[in-house]
Structures are given as C-alpha cells and as structure tokens.
Design a protein around this nucleic acid. Structure first.
Length: 741
DNA sequence: CTGCGCACCGCACGT
DNA sequence: CGGTGCGCAG
C-alpha cells in the first residue's frame, strides 16, 4: 500500500488519505480523477480496514463503474472488491428498491421503463385526456415531467404551481402517468432516483440503517448530479458525513437532463468543514492542446477558478480543416486518418472522431467504409432499442410482472395471434370496469361474453405465458428466453420471412440469448430474471470499452467524456451545430464546456473541422464557422494552406519531418510552433502595442480602454475598463483584443 | 384483422 | 433524409 501512495502526486495522496469527513476534489481534465477514486477505495479497504460492503461508490455510467472495480482489483488482489457497492446511481438504487420498495406500495418485481417506454405511455395518456400532440409535443411533456421528477416535485404540487399552458397540460399528464406507472408496478428512470427519497421519508428507520451500512460514500462526476441525486446522497451521508465527491465544474454537460451545477459549486455550503483538493496537473495532453482548452474555458463566467498545467511538451499545433460540404469533410478526416497511420505510425485505435449529434455519424460512416478504414460507432441506434430486442424484453418483463400492461400490450399480438385493436379496447374496458389489471381481465375473459374466436386466441396466449412463468420459477434466464423464442413463434416467424432484415433480427435475438447464457453462467441466484432485466434496462451501447480492437472510434462529444485518444477530430464545428442553437447565455456556456471536454480528450494531435454546407432535414444549409474556433488562440491553429489561422508569419518552416509531409499535393501541417508553443506568443506580445490608454475591442465585452498592463509572456495581463461590462483583468494571450485606435 | 403505402414531422446530448 | 402514424384495401 505504501507503494500505491507513491504513485500519486502530493495533492492526490492527500485526497486519498483524508478518509473521514466531507471531501471535495476538483479534478481538471486528465488530472488523475479516476486514479484518486480507485486508490482511495483501495486505501479504505487495505489500510483503514473498511469492509467493502460499507463503501458506496456512485458513477454515471456502467463503464466507469466496471473500470473502477477492475482497477481496484488490480491494485489489491482479485476478488478484493467483492461486496463493494459500485455502480451507476440508477443501478444501485434499482437494487436497493428491489429490497425495500414494498414499503411504498410496489412489489419487488417492478418493471423498469426506459425513455421510449415512458414516451409511449405519456403519448397514450395524452390521447386519453384528449390533449392533442399538435398543441403540446410529446417530447415537451416528457421533458417537463422528467424535470419535475428530477427536482423532486410531486404531481399535486406541480399542478398547483404550473404556470404556462404547456405546464398545465403536462401537470395533468404527469398525474395520470404517475398513476399508470404505479398500476403497472413500473418505475421510469427518474423514479429510480426519487423513489428512494420517498422511501426514506416513509421509513426513517430504513434510512438510518442504510446510513450505518454505507459508512463511506463516493460520487464521481459530481458536477452532473441532479437534485434528486444530490438529495439522496446528502441524506445517506447525513449521519457519518463521510462523503467524498469528485468533479469538474468545467465539464458539466448534462444540465438538460437536470444536472445542477450548483451542487458542486455549493458543496462547501452544505458541509462547512469540507476538505477541498484541486487537481490541476494534467498528464494527458500537450501544452498546445491545453493552451487551447484553457483559453476556451476561461471565457465562461460561472466557474471555479483553476487552470490546467501541462506535464508534457508543446507538441503539434491544432489543425483546422475547412470543407465544401459534409461529405468532403468526412473525406478529409478519412484521408488524414490514413496518412497519420502511414506516415506517423498511429494505430486506428488511437484515433477518434467526435460530433455534436448522432445524425452526423452516418456520412462519416459511409465515407470511412469507402476508405476501408475500420471504425466503430458508440451509441447511435442502441442494440437495446431494436424492435426485436424490445419485444423479447417485454416478454421477459411481463413474465416477471404481469401487472405490467404496457409490456403486455406490446406482446399480446406479436407475433400476430388475431388479437386486434378492437378486441384490446374491449378488454381494457372490461378490466377497468372490474378494477383489475389487463392480464387479470384476459384470464377471466371466458366470463365476459366475448366471441369464441377471441377467447381461443386469448386462451392460447395465457397458456403460453403461464408455461413461461413456470419455467422462470425453476429454470435459468437462458431457459426462459429460449423457450419464449420457441413458444411465441418469434424466431420461426423471422426465419420464415427470410429477408436480410429478418436475418439480422434473428441474429440480434441470438445475441440476446447468448447474453442470457452468459448471465446464467455467472448468476445462480433465484432472482435471476429480475437481475437480468435490471442489467438490460440500464445497459447502454456506451458501455463497451474502446481500444479493444483496432478501429477508429466514432462518437458524440457527450459519449467521449472520460475517454482519451492520441488523435482527436472534432467535426461539424459550425454555428447552430456546435454550438447548437443557444437561446440563453447559460446554454452557450454549457456548449463551451462541451467543446472543452472535446478538446481535452486529445493527447497529441487535435483536428478541428467544419463544413460550409450541410444537409439538415434533407435540406442543404449554408453554414458559418463555429465561433468556438475563434476562441482558440489563432497562433496555435494551422490551416490547410500551411499558415497559422492568425496569418502570422510562421516561426519555423516545415523541414520535411513535419506532420504529413505533403498531403494531396499541398503542404500539410508545418511544425510551426513546435518547441515553442507555450512561449511563442510571449515574444510577440510585448510589442503588441497594448499599453495604458489604448482603446480596444473584445469579442464578448465590446469596446473598452486599457487601464494598465502587467507581467510578460503567458502571464501578461491587462486591466481594462469596458464601456458596458465594467472593469476586468484579462490574460492578454487569450483575450484576443483588437486595438481600435 | 392485417399489411401496405403515403404523408407528415423532426435532430440534441443519455441513465 | 428517416422514422412514425394513420388510412385504406384485401
């Protein structure tokens, strides 16, 4: 263990060793955040002799949780993390709820509805309430309800406070939607976070026993917690106050799903005796890349002051690609990937292409395929969102929880068994009249005076379900799934169809089956099916680890958080795409943080790319270059013409050993600022004409007058009085001031 | 009841 | 452009 501590720098080591009381670690990008969490857990187990089950570590992705667990196992010994509670907020609380949710009127076999399930339920409720989706879009209603839930506002309260038209409509839907979830014995994703709070209110004894059980609480990516997550963590930690949070306000990019940046900004208000550690030493990126990132993020007003310090060389300049349309953009990216591989020995796995929206991936994909570049897309159309998988999962859910009428409706006539819409409407009326679940009504249908043809169809369905329920009680998940494929006729239907599409679907179902087999091999418990459904419901396509095979990674910037690559391409750098439509200044700041996340993923080489036109909804649109490009010191950005973006004379011509040598007959990146990067502007900045009394113009603050100038080189600062924004001190190298007079 | 074709509408980002 | 939902014919 002493060895372990030696692998940390001073600040990291203190953060690891401060084991009691509230601790906040502000960890800049690439500063060893994951290292601190994993070493701390290892330290608690090994040095402080804390039992692993007393430690609760909460992350935002399954992948992060899995990686941390593996790393701790590596640090200590295999199996050392047995009993450790490490996982996403959602999966950990789903597990807890399985044990205690009976206290608030659900049963432990509850279904978990994902965003799509929830959307269709909301749509259905709107229909019932006669709220046209033309007047209020479903997405809007879903968003309003989700935000209300994340803020822990219950339907009654929300209805009282609903202000505008949309909110009033949504409030009505919220109430019915919540009731239906309960009737279905189902929870949506937001419920997984707020039901624990209801549980704590209902049973203070339970809360206290959990407080004693989870002696040590650690939270990763704290800047991305929403109100419900904040509250649940706060209450769990209230007794022993061993709460350790790690985050970076500069990387807060999830406010749209309720993340509240004030949680991290105000942590010290909640815990007055917080020990705060700032990790600012970056081990990941070149100085040039960090200079770009620091320059960009410093334009945000609302942040905790910190600037990353590089531990690496200056490295290469950034490279700006400008294309005629998005197809050409993708071409250029492909060409650069090939030349980086050929001329600089990079592997495909060391390179990543980022974009703002998933829709952009298609063109990139097509072009990379033509270039015969192996690639892998993360996210996009998730395996779990495919129709055949959702159908199979609906069957499983329903077998576990026959109150789940949503899942029932999905499978009752798939494959087609002659139970049509009209029959279903009748059955629902029958169920509602008797106050029973839809399935209960179906089982009692023989008493309901329905047509014989329908009764026969229903009888066949019920006997299949009951048979599968029996298998579920005795057999493994694999048994249930394989039998359900057979009995339902799903697989024979797909085989009979015999088209390329049906073949793909068949293969997907086989893939699910092999996942079930794998699960059954590793989980012997009686509640296997429930656990399997938990995993499936909360799994995403983002959980896979890049770099396992040799391909280029394609992903959204959001998906890239937490990852790093030697070479990064940021594409689609256009106004209204990245940054995407921003109406409020705060939205622009979040986009800027997102751009910052993208920049700081790169270790060695960073390409910024934009296209002058792009298809949008099938319509070609003229695009303007993203203002974010202008926020990077132009001297460290090279254009394809081989000049710096500032068009300043280059300090050093390409000597042939530079980046790509020649590229498409044109000079590629000259190594212009190599070896000078950080200090290059220092030489020129002293003669930049900036002195007291000079009139300047700043992109954001507008016109102003220089009051004083201090420092030199990178440290050179100017005190300026702006006509509207007041007095400010700015770093000259980043401020990009234009001298007016 | 089922399958097909057409019209319409929307693209963030993801647990 | 791509997915979805609705209306109509069989």
């Amino acid at each position: 263990m002493t060895d372990l501590l030696q692998q940390l720098n001073d600040v990291q080591r203190k953060a690891v060793q401060t084991t009691s009381g509230p601790v906040m670690v502000l960890a800049g990008a690439g500063s060893g955040k994951t290292r601190v969490i994993t070493y701390r857990i290892a330290y608690l187990i090994e040095h402080e002799r804390v039992a692993p089950h007393q430690i609760l570590a909460l992350t935002f992705t399954n992948k992060a949780a899995r990686e941390m667990r593996d790393r701790i196992d590596d640090l200590l010994y295999p199996g050392s993390t047995r009993g450790l509670w490490i996982g996403t907020f959602h999966s950990i609380f789903a597990r807890l709820l399985r044990n205690y949710i009976h206290l608030i009127g659900y049963t432990s076999n509850f279904s978990i509805y994902d965003a799509d399930d929830s959307k269709s339920l909301i749509k259905q409720v709107m229909k019932e309430l006669g709220i046209s989706t033309d007047s209020v879009p479903v997405n809007t209603v879903q968003g309003i309800i989700s935000r209300a839930k994340n803020s822990f506002i219950m339907p009654a309260e929300f209805q009282r406070d609903a202000s505008d038209y949309n909110q009033q409509k949504a409030a009505k839907v919220y109430e019915v939607y919540a009731r239906k979830l309960r009737e279905n014995n189902a929870l949506d994703f937001d419920d997984l976070l707020i039901k624990p709070l209801e549980l704590f209110d209902k049973s203070p004894e339970l809360l206290e026993s959990l407080q004693d059980y989870f002696r040590y609480i650690l939270i990763d990516e704290y800047q991305d917690t929403n109100r419900a997550q904040y509250l649940v963590a706060k209450r769990l930690a209230a007794k022993h106050r061993n709460i350790f949070v790690v985050g970076d306000d500069a990387q807060s990019i999830y406010s749209w799903r309720g993340a509240d940046i004030t949680n991290i900004l105000n942590f010290q208000d909640d815990y007055q005796d917080t020990a705060v550690f700032k990790l600012v030493e970056n081990y990941r990126s070149t100085r040039t890349i960090l200079r770009a990132a620091n320059g960009v993020i410093s334009r945000n007003r609302r942040q905790i002051e910190k600037e990353l310090v590089s531990h690496r060389d200056d490295g290469e300049p950034l490279f700006l690609l400008e294309s005629f349309n998005e197809k050409r953009e993708a071409d250029k990216v492909g060409e650069h990937i090939q030349s980086l591989k050929m001329l600089h020995g990079y592997d495909y796995r060391q390179m990543a292409v980022f974009y703002r929206t998933n829709a952009q991936s298609r063109v990139m994909e097509d072009v990379l395929r033509i270039h015969r570049i192996p690639y892998r897309i993360f996210g996009s159309v998730s395996f779990y969102k495919r129709k055949e998988i959702k159908d199979a999962v609906a069957y499983l859910r329903f077998i576990v929880n026959d109150q789940d009428s949503e899942s029932l409706l999905r499978i009752i006539n798939f494959p087609p068994r002659k139970i049509g819409q009209a029959s279903i409407v009748k059955l629902r009326e029958y169920a509602d009249a008797r106050g029973v679940s839809l399935y209960e009504a179906i089982r009692n249908a023989p008493d309901g005076g329905f047509q014989t043809r329908l009764l026969n169809a229903l009888k066949g369905f019920v006997s299949m379900i009951e048979q599968l329920k029996m298998i579920a009680e005795e057999g493994t998940v694999y048994d249930v799934l394989s039998n359900l494929y057979e009995l339902s006729g799903i697989t024979s239907l797909l085989q009979a169809e015999n088209t390329p599409e049906s073949l793909t679907r068949y293969e997907n179902l086989q893939e699910l089956l092999s996942m079930a087999r794998d699960f059954s091999d590793h989980n012997q418990g009686a509640n296997g099916l429930n656990e399997f459904l938990n995993d499936i419901s909360l799994a995403t396509d983002y959980d896979e680890t890049p770099e396992s095979e040799n391909y280029v990674s394609l992903m959204t910037v959001h998906a890239a958080k937490g990852l790093e690559f030697p070479v990064v391409f940021i594409t689609g750098l256009e106004e209204k795409l990245f940054p995407l439509n921003c109406y409020e200044p705060e939205e622009l700041e979040e986009e800027r943080r997102l751009f910052y996340v993208a920049l700081t993923r790169a270790e060695e080489r960073l390409f910024l790319s934009w296209s002058k036109s792009r298809y949008h909804y099938g319509q070609p649109q003229v695009c303007m270059r993203s203002s974010f490009v202008d926020e990077i010191d132009s001297e460290i950005v090279m254009t394809e013409g081989g000049r710096s973006l500032s068009d300043a004379p280059l300090r050093q011509r390409d000597d042939g050993g530079g980046y790509a040598g020649r590229f498409n007959g044109r000079p590629a990146v000259p190594e212009a600022v190599r070896g000078r990067g950080g200090s290059a502007p220092a030489a020129s900045s002293e003669s930049d004409g900036l002195r007291k009394g000079v009139r300047v113009h700043h992109a954001m603050f507008g016109p102003g007058e220089v009051l004083s100038v201090q420092g030199r080189g990178e440290q050179r600062k100017a005190r300026i009085r702006f006509r509207t924004a007041g007095e400010k001190t700015l770093m000259v190298q980043y401020a990009k001031l234009n001298i007016v007079s």
